[in-house]
């Protein structure tokens, strides 16, 4: 367990450092980023340098960042002039709510689709739909859902983090591509499991087709799907950037987008470290999930 935590910390440090180096290597320096397209005079430059202590060597700034990060101080946003913890902290809940609902919805949809569409025609229809969902930009799905269910039918409000009604459309938008991919992986896994000898044994024991599918094949098919959980998080966070913009929802996605385009280093670093943290957490959970799904792994 200690080793796990140690590895996790190393990953966090590596992520922060890589992000720091990437931003350092990007064209233009921090002062340019803060000035943006506004007026640019030596006086303005010197004041910005003084305000953010940018006259120190990059190494010193980096060490200072690490030192303060260790003490829980993530610094202030160059652009928004507020503490990073406040900028990000306020946006965590809406994004996690969205990502969690979309994740759960996507997984449930995938399970239902993979198990119920076993007949050849249903399978073909579902496969086509999955392919369409996976290849359609979430932006477009969002706009179409909004046009139909919000603008035309008036069933859901367009925007904001205002209760369950406002969560439905964004969550569905984000869940559909996820469901598309997961269904394909699951179905493939089920197909392979159904070819295994143990399925013949199960059938010989007189088990019904449904029980064979749900109790045996599905369980085998889950393993590769669980491995995708890290990927799932990436999709959810990346998708949130677009979904939040389209639906006018607060959240980490919008903050990240703004921070990256304006090279707001403290915010970018915090988002990267946070994402790395969630990745580590999810992959640990995935490892634990293997043990629950597959009894054979418990013995080793």
């Amino acid at each position: 367990m200690l080793r796990r935590i140690g590895t996790g910390l190393v990953v966090l440090w590596a992520a922060a450092t890589a992000a720091y180096l990437a931003l350092l290597a990007a064209p233009g320096d921090t002062v340019d980023a803060i000035i943006g397209d506004g007026a640019d005079t030596p006086l303005i430059r010197s004041q910005i340098i003084q305000e953010w202590h940018l006259d120190r060597p990059a190494v010193v700034q980096y060490l200072d960042f690490l030192w303060r990060a260790l003490h829980g101080d993530l610094g202030r946003s160059y652009l928004l002039q507020r503490p990073v913890s406040e900028v990000i902290g306020g946006q965590l809940a809406p994004t996690l709510t969205l990502a969690f609902s979309a994740g759960v919805l996507g997984i449930v949809l995938a399970l239902v689709l993979a198990v119920t569409t076993r007949r050849p025609w249903a399978r073909r229809a579902s496969s086509t739909l999955e392919l369409v969902l996976v290849s359609t930009p979430p932006f477009l799905i969002g706009i179409i859902l909004l046009s139909v269910f919000s603008f035309r039918l008036g069933l859901f409000p367009v925007s904001g983090d205002q209760g369950v009604a406002a969560l439905v459309l964004p969550a569905v938008t984000l869940a559909l591509p996820v469901a598309g991919v997961l269904t394909q992986v699951l179905r493939d896994g089920i197909d392979r499991a159904l070819d295994e000898p143990f399925v013949v044994t199960a059938r010989a024991r007189g088990l019904g087709e449904r029980a064979v599918l749900v109790r045996h094949a599905l369980r085998h098919a889950l393993l590769p799907t669980v491995t995708l959980i890290g990927w799932l998080f990436g999709i959810l966070l990346g998708g949130a950037v677009i979904i939040e913009t389209v639906f006018g929802r607060p959240g980490l996605g919008q903050v990240t987008l703004q921070a990256v385009t304006s090279e707001d280093m403290p915010v970018v670093l915090a988002v990267v470290v946070f994402s790395a943290f969630v990745y580590v957490l999810l992959n640990t959970l995935a490892d634990l999930a293997y043990l629950i799904i597959d009894p054979r792994l418990r013995r080793s």
Partner: peptide, 8 residues
């Protein structure tokens, strides 16, 4: 391009 490249 991004802001940094434009400034450069």
């Amino acid at each position: 391009v991004d802001q940094g490249t434009a400034t450069k």
